[in-house]
Design a protein around this nucleic acid. Structure first.
Length: 589
RNA sequence: GCCUCGGUAGCUCAGUUGGAUAGAGCAACGGUUUUCUAAACCGUGGGUCAGGGGUUCGAAUCCCUUCCGGGGUACCA
């Protein structure tokens, strides 16, 4: 569509003797209710023409039609110049953009980007909040890869700390030697139960202490369980054999559980970092900052940075006793990641509750003069809330990831059986299909919403399978595949030039040829939602086309061939687009 | 208090660097199948784009301000 902008620039120059930038030409899609496909907004040009918007539009319109064979006609409504492009133009675009085997390839741009996501704690199973994080990370990685980046998918596992000790301690005290094998529980679930158990017992102790006259603050600090957990953390840091053994064993249970969940979810990583390996990093960066005068020391030896000039606060970066805080570790880990991969960009997929933390982290790295700090980006997303409010693992008010996925698959099964279209499938084929649809519905539901928006999930209201949903798009794909197979379609060079395009065909082509630019803008915005909405639009337009024109029973063979090709191109875009969301599409459903 | 992100139809969401009469889905109502998959299609109703001001040919979009909601503002992570 670029030729229209440059031609418009030419027109302004010749008609009104004014030189303008191409970017000053506002081009948009023509709204449905008007004739044409592309619209140039001509209001801004009236200052050059010194004429009415209508007259200006006509003059430019005449010029464009005279100078571009692709433009067949125009109409002017107020300051809008609506252009109709020839059918040949659209067919050509379809041909060039979509009917090649490597149609979706965007050349590599030579840039490397790391995307860190998931980053679970090993004291509890994954819940719906993690699901959003995982799907976002995986999808953004796929989108960036499609846009030409080299991708490293990283996971930073939070495998140590006081919260891990809490579940360890509770298991030691109340577990009676339970194991995943002895209980039949998934490892992460088993460990999660003890995390909840700790909280329960701890609260009892606190209440007892309060009853005996302590203040709430004192009680929370002095409860024996808390003291024991802290002692356990000290032993862990000292390398105590028994504690380390227990830690390794319980983490191993959790990892096995996570693996199952990740596999079901269909996500994976190229590199896993463990906080137990990285938590001591960052101290040399503190030294560096002190010597550069970026940080300063207080009387108690604690180290700070003053960010008040940047509108933030003073921030502690190292405790007075020399131990790390969260940001110390993150400073060190950021350096480690860069040393490992020398990437151009590094993306952190982390909830918006940590917006401030990342703002500070990136700012500190810039102040330290790290050349790579410019490439850091916090992909912040909104929390997933229940109607009752926030999910809290400790209180057990969470939507469990495994349960949710299983429910979705079950619903998909019921739906599919009711419709009875795949009764001839083998049991195994059915299982595969149910998973594809159930997970497709879930993933689409979570990804179609702009990441930064908060998401409300009502467990009592099931996720839809109709309308603006994953299954709708999947269904459209299956429908196309069915037509293609009945039409004995096989990919081959096509040169069919139908006498004239139907409106529904033109609309579909117009949307299809946007595919690559949509990938690019989704990559620039780190937004799977853009892909999700685009793919939905494609599916809708295809269904309209499908209902309005006959494909297999087209008037003549050439027309049928063309429509089969158009269908095949649509299927490719749907399949590839859904793939960018981590959603598979079936041949039949 | 300060910082930050949200607020668009009953509900869930789209809405490009400011552009035409603000769009989808769900829910409601009505229609479409002897014809390529009805998980579909077509139609009807439904709006103070949170409120107010400003910038301009033009504002859901940019600026200011008020209100409502989330999050942050820890020697927690």
């Amino acid at each position: 569509m670029n030729f229209i902008a440059s031609l418009a620039v030419q027109a302004i120059k010749e008609l009104y003797q004014v030189e303008i930038e191409e970017s000053a030409v506002n081009i948009q899609e023509t709204r449905k209710e008007f004739d044409g496909q592309v619209t140039v907004v001509t209001f801004p040009f009236t200052r050059y023409s010194k004429k009415s918007p209508e007259q200006t539009g006509s003059e430019i319109g005449d010029y464009l039609v005279a100078h571009a064979s692709e433009i067949s006609s125009y109409n002017v409504i107020k300051g809008f110049l609506n252009l109709s492009l020839t059918d040949e133009f659209w067919l050509q675009a379809l041909h060039e953009e979509l009917l090649k085997p490597d149609f979706e390839d965007i050349p590599k741009n030579g840039k490397r980007v790391m995307i860190e996501y998931s980053s679970p704690n090993t004291n509890k199973p994954l819940h719906l909040g993690h699901v959003r994080n995982n799907l976002l990370g995986f999808s953004v990685a796929a989108i960036l890869e499609a846009a030409g980046y080299e991708i490293i998918k990283a996971n930073l596992v939070n495998d140590r700390g006081i919260h891990i000790c809490k579940s360890m301690l509770a298991w030691e005290k109340f577990g009676n030697g339970e194991t995943p094998e002895s209980t039949g529980l998934k490892g992460d679930k088993l460990v999660g139960n003890y995390y909840v158990r700790f909280d329960k017992e701890y609260k009892k102790e606190v209440e007892a202490l309060i009853a005996s006259g302590k203040s709430e603050e004192e009680a929370k600090k002095e409860a024996p369980l808390m003291l024991e957990a802290q002692e356990m953390l000290r032993k862990w840091e000292a390398g105590d054999h028994q504690v380390i053994h227990l830690w390794k064993q319980m983490n191993a249970w959790v990892y096995k559980g996570f693996e199952e969940t990740y596999e079901k979810m269909g996500i994976a990583f190229d590199k896993v970092y463990y906080e137990s390996d990285t938590y001591l990093l960052g101290k040399d960066i503190i030294e560096e900052g002190l010597s550069k005068g970026v940080f300063f020391k207080k009387q108690d030896n604690s180290v700070w940075i003053d960010l008040t000039a940047d509108g933030l606060d003073e921030k502690l970066v190292l405790r007075g006793d020399g131990t790390s805080v969260y940001i110390t570790q993150d400073l060190g880990t950021a350096q480690l990641k860069y040393d490992d991969y020398h990437m151009d960009n590094s993306i952190y997929v982390v909830g918006n509750e940590q917006d401030y933390h990342f703002k500070v982290l990136f700012l500190i790295l810039k102040k330290l003069g790290k050349s790579w700090a410019e490439g850091l980006y916090h992909l912040s997303y909104g929390m997933v809330d229940l109607p009752s409010g926030k999910m809290k693992s400790r209180e057990g008010t969470v939507v469990d990831a495994d349960d949710l996925m299983a429910e979705m698959v079950e619903t998909a099964k019921q739906r599919t059986e009711e419709l009875g279209k795949v009764d001839d499938f083998s049991e195994q084929e059915k299982e595969v299909l149910y998973e594809m649809i159930g997970l497709g519905a879930l993933k689409y539901f979570l990804l179609k919403v702009e990441p930064k928006k908060r998401l409300l999930f009502d467990p009592n209201e099931s996720i839809d399978f109709q309308g603006h949903t994953g299954p709708f798009v999947q269904y459209t794909h299956a429908r196309i595949k069915s037509v293609l197979s009945k039409g004995a379609y096989h990919e081959e060079p096509f040169d069919v030039q139908p006498a004239g395009l139907e409106a529904s065909e033109r609309e579909l082509i117009k949307e299809l040829v946007k595919f690559k630019s949509v990938i690019v803008s989704a990559a620039n915005d780190y937004s799977p939602a853009i892909i999700a909405n685009y793919v939905y639009e494609i599916a809708k337009l295809y269904n309209k086309f499908y209902h309005e024109v006959a494909i297999l029973k087209a008037e003549d063979v050439r027309l049928k061939e063309f429509r089969l090709n158009l269908s095949a191109a649509t299927a490719k875009v749907i399949s590839k687009g859904m793939g960018l969301l981590g959603i598979q599409v079936p041949e039949r459903m």
